[in-house]
Design a protein around this nucleic acid. Structure first.
Lengths: 155, 155
DNA sequence: TCCAAAATCACCCTAAAGTATGAGCTTGAT
DNA sequence: ATCAAGCTCATACTTTAGGGTGATTTTGGA
């Protein structure tokens, strides 16, 4: 909720100032109202309540909210005419080359065949495919293809 | 975090007891060490820290974690109803089990995962998949899936 | 009942896929 | 100019996929 250091400093300053004010208040009470030593319990309670409240307030302010991911179904039509879903493609952040590799994967080509098709080495395709899996958060090429088809990134 | 009333009572009692103990401690200090009035600031600071910490602890213990719901879209293909092409399926001559394996392959599962899904051994899945590739005249699972989708054998 | 097909599983081996890391080169934007 | 991102490639390693063969058990139909 609060993350920038300035805000944290503001809280610290506020804390210090309120502590000082409280001390002044207590001094004043002591001098003016002649609070006897045996009345400790009374304003000790007040102090306890005050700082406990302050602590609670601090805790509530400073705790980071817990995020809960809820999966929300989105239905898409997969009619005969295919139009690539640019939005989803952008979200994945695949590069031009990575998308090319993904498309050839979807055609059922092996890494070796893809490397020959694109005139690069097998290792390069492995690197690209690994990046694709990472960005798509999948483990295998079959999952990547399945997901890409569902997202309408490839026909 | 803690929701049953008994636990809350326990906390309250603990709170009260610790407050009482602190008061006794202060009294004892006052009597035995002769804390002068002007040394207020010192142990007031200690008290402040103690109760602030207590307040923070209480707040963390008693508040339910703040949650922020983040909706994650899950894309589902809900296009025109899929009808399997029985003619093409018959032409291939896939058995019931082989078709099952093919479908799970298309979902991106590994042979290991398929074997666990169907409660059979990994070797059995390998045998089935080999038969599928043979009947479909393909070399790899990715090709088999691509072909099956084109032939409308699987959605 | 008997047989062929289907289903199950095992073993061994090779090929392909995937992981991890590092490094050189290019390019576009600030 | 420089700096991040993309593309390229390599090496070494682990895991998974796939091929070949053989075997046992189930099962549906002639």
């Amino acid at each position: 909720m609060i993350s920038n250091p300035l805000a944290k400093h503001k809280l610290t300053i506020l804390y210090g100032v309120s502590l000082a004010l409280l001390l002044f208040l207590l001094k004043w009470l002591e001098l003016k109202l002649i609070i006897v030593n045996h009345a400790y319990e009374a304003y000790m309670g007040a102090i306890a309540i005050f700082f406990t409240t302050l602590g609670i307030w601090l805790a509530l302010k400073l705790t980071k909210p817990k995020t809960v991911v809820v999966e929300k179904p989105v239905y898409i039509n997969n009619g005969p005419e295919f139009t690539i879903n640019q939005t989803e493609l952008d979200k994945l952040g695949l590069s031009k080359r990575e998308l090319e590799v993904l498309q050839l994967m979807a055609e059922g080509l092996s890494n070796q065949e893809i490397s020959e098709r694109l005139f690069v080495s097998l290792n390069t395709i492995k690197t690209h495919s690994a990046k694709v899996f990472e960005k798509m958060e999948v483990k295998r090429r079959t999952q990547a293809v399945e997901m890409a088809k569902r997202l309408c990134i490839i026909p």
